[in-house]
Computed example of a mutant assay.
Amino acid sequence: MRAEQRAGRLGVGTIGAGRVGAVLASALAGAGHALTGVAAVSEASRERAAAMLPAVPVLRIPEIVERSELVLLAVPADELPELVEGLAAAGVWRPGQLVVHTAARYGVGVLTPALRAGAIPLAIHPAMSFTGTSMDLARLAGTWFAVTAPAPVLPIAQALVVEMGGEPFVVAEADRAAYAEAIDTAVSFSTAIVDQATGLLEGIGVARAGAVLAPLVRSSVENALARHDRGPLPDGASTIDEAGIDRPLGGGE
């Protein structure tokens, strides 16, 4: 399937109204896609769906899949394999349907049950920490997304990322575990260090310890990242313009 065949607007169903799912669904709606429904189980998810996806119906998962040309699976990684397999066993997946998951650790192999039913598997992970609020929509601009997909449909995954304001780069199926470890390390380490440092300042009576440390932490992180931001762009990094032409990022006509 060529990328230009998918250039039109899609009916997007979202399974999982957590911090990531609600924001990405909202970003896709902002790009002109139609939101067909959202699955939200917990009270927090329902509240988030109401705030981020107003007027989008909360539906049962099989009904969302049935209504949608693109199904966004934004569920915890541990739940993803069972969900995909269960929907396959129920005969819910449809031929030609785009199935996109957002788990860092998995490529498209986890979507094999949907692929067997004729669906098109895509793995898209934004390298960003989400709050689940409208604040994240602005943060998506310039955020790098790891994309994994079969070669013939890789441009579709890249195009979806660009529509959401992100920058796509390709991570091979075999490298997803290492990618996920890098993401987990960055998040866990930075969170732990900030918590420890602010705790020390609060312990000596410093008010607003987070605000005091913010310029230091940001500049230190930026300096550290700059040391590793030289050389060519990540493999497969590209942007797709309105004409459907795949162009390299980083300048040039």
Rank of each mutant, 00 (worst) to 15 (best):
E4G: 01
G13S: 07
G13Q: 10
I15R: 10
G16Y: 12
G16E: 11
G21E: 11
A27G: 09
A31Q: 00
H33D: 09
A34M: 08
L35D: 14
V38Q: 13
V41M: 12
M52K: 05
M52C: 06
M52P: 12
L53W: 15
V56T: 03
V56Y: 07
P62G: 07
E63K: 05
E63Y: 04
V65E: 05
E66V: 02
R67F: 06
R67D: 00
E69C: 00
L70P: 02
D78Y: 00
G86T: 03
L87I: 08
A88Y: 12
A89D: 15
W93Y: 01
R94T: 10
G96I: 04
H101F: 04
T102Q: 04
T102P: 03
A103W: 02
T112D: 13
T112M: 09
T112N: 10
A114Q: 12
L115I: 06
R116T: 04
R116Y: 09
A119S: 05
A123G: 12
P126R: 13
A127G: 12
F130S: 09
T131G: 11
L140Q: 03
G142S: 12
G142I: 06
T148G: 07
Q158P: 03
G165E: 09
D175E: 15
A178K: 15
I183G: 01
D184W: 10
Q196K: 11
G205Y: 11
A207P: 04
R208K: 12
A209Y: 05
P215C: 06
A226S: 13
R230G: 06
P232A: 08
D241T: 13
E242L: 05
E242Q: 11
P248Q: 15
L249K: 11
E253L: 10
